[in-house]
């Protein structure tokens, strides 16, 4: 008998434990193992959804930001040995990378005259950071298109990046769609919430939706109210997106803007 296909359903439920004990025999182990490996492999293959791709992309963008910042700091430190005036004058990272070696260095620069091989090493770093900036733009474009397809309503309200972060913090679009607005409002503040529940520290009011311009730029006394209104609409948008309903994102956005 193949233990795997034995039909449990035909037994009355009080017989099942004894029946399962009978299957506990070494001769069945290889079949149990092989079939479970095959079935689990297939389940894993089928478990990937569009929001999994969105979560990877938005995490990647966050990490690129971190890496770019670290390397840019290093680049400026290094480059300023050579030509500090330009680094000091050009605060925009991408602009500095663009001009760093194409602008002529003035004779009276505070920077040291470096050998060609020394300059080359700094230049290599600049070239690679530029590429990271390009990669980030590509990933952002990809995220925008993926969010537009999978979460058009959320995106209309929050933009692709913030919307994707909400999906990431919730764990999945499905879970985001099941959350009450009050929880959505606090997504990203889990640590503070936990401290509050455990030790009575003051309850957090700021989740990542506070990065939304309508919340962040509201007068301080109004931010809580705007966050609540926005979270309300995000909750609706997430449900519509999860169930692939009609596009109502524009309406929702206007409703939030109207409450300003």
């Amino acid at each position: 008998m193949d233990p795997f296909t034995s039909i449990i359903g035909e037994r009355s439920s009080k017989d099942i434990p004894a029946f399962l004990q009978q299957l506990k025999q070494a001769k069945h182990f290889p079949a149990f193992r092989e079939k479970n490996i095959a079935l689990t492999r297939q389940q894993i293959q089928e478990a990937v959804h569009e929001d999994d791709l969105i979560k990877q992309a938005v995490s990647c963008i966050t990490e690129l930001n971190r890496v770019i910042n670290i390397l840019m700091k290093r680049f400026r430190e290094w480059y300023e040995l050579y030509h500090p005036e330009l680094s000091h004058a050009v605060r925009d990272h991408e602009k500095l990378l663009e001009f760093a070696f194409s602008r002529k260095k003035p004779k009276d620069s505070m920077g040291t005259a470096l050998a060609e091989t020394d300059v080359k090493a700094i230049q290599e770093l600049a070239a690679h950071i530029s590429q990271l900036f390009n990669l980030k733009k590509m990933q952002e474009a990809y995220l925008t298109s993926a969010m537009g397809k999978t979460c058009p309503n959320i995106t209309a309200l929050t933009g692709a990046l913030l919307g994707a972060q909400l999906v990431l913090r919730a764990g999945s679009l499905k879970h985001l769609a099941s959350l009450p607005a009050s929880t959505i409002q606090l997504l990203g503040a889990e640590k503070a919430l936990f401290r509050h529940l455990k030790s009575g520290a003051k309850s957090p009011k700021h989740g990542i939706i506070h990065e939304h311009p309508l919340v962040g730029q509201a007068p301080a006394g109004e931010r809580g109210r705007m966050a609540r209104i926005l979270a309300d609409k995000i909750a609706i948008a997430a449900r519509v997106d999860y169930f692939k309903g009609a596009f109502i994102g524009e309406q929702l956005r206007k409703q939030v803007e109207g409450k300003r």
Binding site: P3, F4, T5, S6, I7, I8, I16, P17, L20, Q21, Q22, L23, K24, Q25, H28, F29, F32, R33, K35, N36, I37, L39, T40, Q43, I44, A47
Partner: peptide
């Protein structure tokens, strides 16, 4: 050779009862 993976929710043992045997 003595391990089998089962992707399932432990809250619903009926759903994987056909994939395992009884246990000691």
């Amino acid at each position: 050779s003595n391990m089998a993976p089962v992707l399932a929710d432990a809250f619903h043992p009926e759903a994987y009862a056909s994939r395992v045997s009884g246990a000691d």
